[in-house]
Design a protein around this nucleic acid. Sequence first.
RNA 1: GGACGUGUAGCUCAGCUGGUUAGAGCGCUCGCCUCACACGCGAGAGGUCAGGGGUUCGAGUCCCUUCACGUCCA
Length: 891
Amino acid sequence: MSADLTPSRAATIPERPSLDGLEDKWGRVWAEQQTYAFDRAKALEGSRAEVFSIDTPPPTASGSLHMGHVFSYTHTDCMARYKRMVGLNVFYPIGWDDNGLPTEKRVQNYYGVRGDASLPHDPSFVPPHRGDAKSLRAGDAMPISRQNFIELCDELTVEDEKAFESLFRRLGQSFDWTISYRTIDDHSRATAQQAFLRNLARGEAYQAEAPGLWDVTFQTAVAQAELEARDYPGAYHRVAFHLGDGGAGTEPVYVETTRPELIPSVVALIAHPDDERYAGLFGSTVRSPLFGVEVPVVAHPLAEMDKGAGIAMCCTFGDLTDVIWWRELQLPTRSVITRQGRIQAEVPAWIASGPGAGLFAELAGKTVHAAREAVVAALRESGDLDGEPRATQRKANFYERGEKPLEIVTSRQWYIRNGGRDAALNDKLVGQGQSVDFHPPFMRARYSNWVTGLNGDWLVSRQRFFGVAIPVWYPLDAEGEPVWDRPIVPSEESLPVDPVTQAPDGYEESQRGRAGGFIGDPDVLDTWATSSLSPQIAAGWRRVDEDGAVTTDPLFDKVFPMDVRPQGHDIIRTWLFATIVRAYYEHGTAPWRNAAISGWILDPERKKMSKSKGNVVTPEDVLREHSADAVRYWAASGRLGTDAAYDVGQMKVGRRLAIKVLNASKFALSFGDVRADADLAAMVTDPLDRALLAGLADVIEKATAGFESWDYTRSLEVTETFFWTFCDDYLELVKDRAYGANVDDAAAASARATLRLALDSLLRLLAPFLPYVTEEVWSWWHEGSVHLTSWPTADEVRLAGEPADPAMLGAVGAALATVRKSKSEAKLSMRAEVAHIVLGGPESLLDHVRAGESDLRAAGRITGSLDYVPAQTWTASDVELIPVEKPKPQA
RNA sequence: GGACGUGUAGCUCAGCUGGUUAGAGCGCUCGCCUCACACGCGAGAGGUCAGGGGUUCGAGUCCCUUCACGUCCA
């Protein structure tokens, strides 16, 4: 039986091995030698099964990497390294998500600018400053053209990405850096536009004018997945609506509303059909206070009987329930809130002829907040406010990055169907989730819950500057009005396009904005609409050949569907779901076979780490202080799907382990060389050595099983435990035997061979977790990288002949511990000699101890008589110890 | 209100399909400068496995229920 090892040679070992500098040393070597390069040619020749492909999350380039990134990316890297060692051709790309609002905000602050679509491109533009913005008020920002703005985004994200790359490299991420992309680069933009155009051609994407959530700060539409419900202070205002013509003697109907400023928008009062208090009013009409607009009282089950007065004021639009009522009850549209979050300037028709026209004119142009105060004052004056407003906490929808509650405005937007309005499609998309193996499995419920609970299609258009342009134009009719339902689309060959600066085929730029001409769609796609195509972008779904033809890279079928999507659970509803939707439409399949979901990192007090709490640590500092291997050890101790604490203690344990690997390896290789051509396995004859390797074989099997079930933590744990036993017991037991004797001494040779065999496997078992220290030690006596060797197999260390019993090492180790305990209790040095001892132990194990007695005597310094007696537990009796002679201080 | 997860030594966590006196590391206490390692080595103390009920010869492990915490969705 010969082990499948890389070439070995006489060991060259540093005098004092150290972790310091290993990251720089090996990081450079790995980069120079392309250690982690994906073998494209081999993939193209071979079968899909020989490849392991990873849909790496592209981090947001404009943020900064935090310990959560370190945590989850390490999880993936450990799996990637394992898969590489079992012989798979690992496709491990890295991309940057430099798209979207975070980048825009960062660019605005960094350069002191803001985008203004009305401005022309200035080719010689120089930003006011770079970084170090002084106190920057929105008004001070310099307005610049969209193109100039995008150029700045481009400039800054490239800088940010360099910092990220350096950190990832130091952490030991085994990406293939040649397979990289940026979600704003030409290839990504073209891919995103091509996929969108195909969605459009197949009817999966559509345009609609509809009420939708709108962020007044960022001036953009917002999708359901970007919502965040937050507590928001408000007040119930009890407001009177008047019956009939409001004649005296009739009791008004009181509603309780938190948004009195929307009274001009009221279209109905709505109560629950079972609510007897209002049953008599259904079908009749009431007049709104102040404005005197006549609205019906209608029944709908979404009215909450126990909330407020039990009867709600339906306005267009105060919240999402209003939208449902408006749609289902076919109510009129009476919007007064503009996209800026202010009351519109013109007095609307339904108010102009009524008593409130003057009041409305006063409200015009006011913010929602100011309008509310004005309306409340007017209600007080007219007597329509019953009592005083009562403060309340209500849940309001916010854009996840926004600071003001979302308004609902009607606008023309693009959508991609995602099952939110189509039960059959919803079922299919839930089914796509079933075909992905989630790790841990319960994470699938997050997916199914989200998909099942969707209440609308995916809104993909955003009114932003920096992003992938929606690749369509609209013809203008003879009156100069856009013909929305006949969008002009570009050819796939011409992608990427920017409809704002380029004219569509068949038109001249001079026709832009003119009757009979065209306009370009000014919007960009949701960031997720691009990042949801990360598998397609990385794997070359779109490729442009030299002749300009659009095809697909033949590699695509060798890596797609990908083997795994690693990501955090917070973006199951966005990134994971969107990727499934896109792959389903384009390929009819799930985009990956597995989804590996990492948990969050919490601070030691179990709080979420955030800048505002001041408990954020920067990965650079952490890596410098503890070493990359130590930080990886901490990360790898966290199982998939489980939140973990930021735990310096665990990093110290990892550092200790890494240092132990250095020292133990040095020791194990220091007993004199074995013959280079020797069959190591054949040299292992001593029963204790055979027991060690038998135990190691079991460990290899368990560690392998761990990785195969995505439980890398289990692999680390069994390997680590065994490694410490190897150090504390086995090394101690055999060192005397391995020392000193000549090369031809069979007992010594057995120990030395075992040490090498064991170390060889142990390093490979630890390599996915501790890439630096294992590479360092490997280099002492091997050619090539440990990361490109084969994963150890139990067969390598399972010797021919009589099967050895791994329990023997445990038995002799327990006996040694018993001897140590005697010395410890006597408060003596471990060097103290044992003149006499009677060892008690389980009868079934005593034979094992006898078989290893010479090693036990050497390690325990038992120089006198050693007797055995069966006992329930390990005990020592009749112990006679000889203290070590303390050397007299020299005079 | 719904879904999912978690609750095991002071702390961080293992305990897989139920089976002998519940494990590890850190921390703590005591001892040891043992020729790989003092960034080390050895030894020790610490738990009625959140509470209650049930199934079983036997439950931290399965079922029911209560409580606490977390995340997401309403």
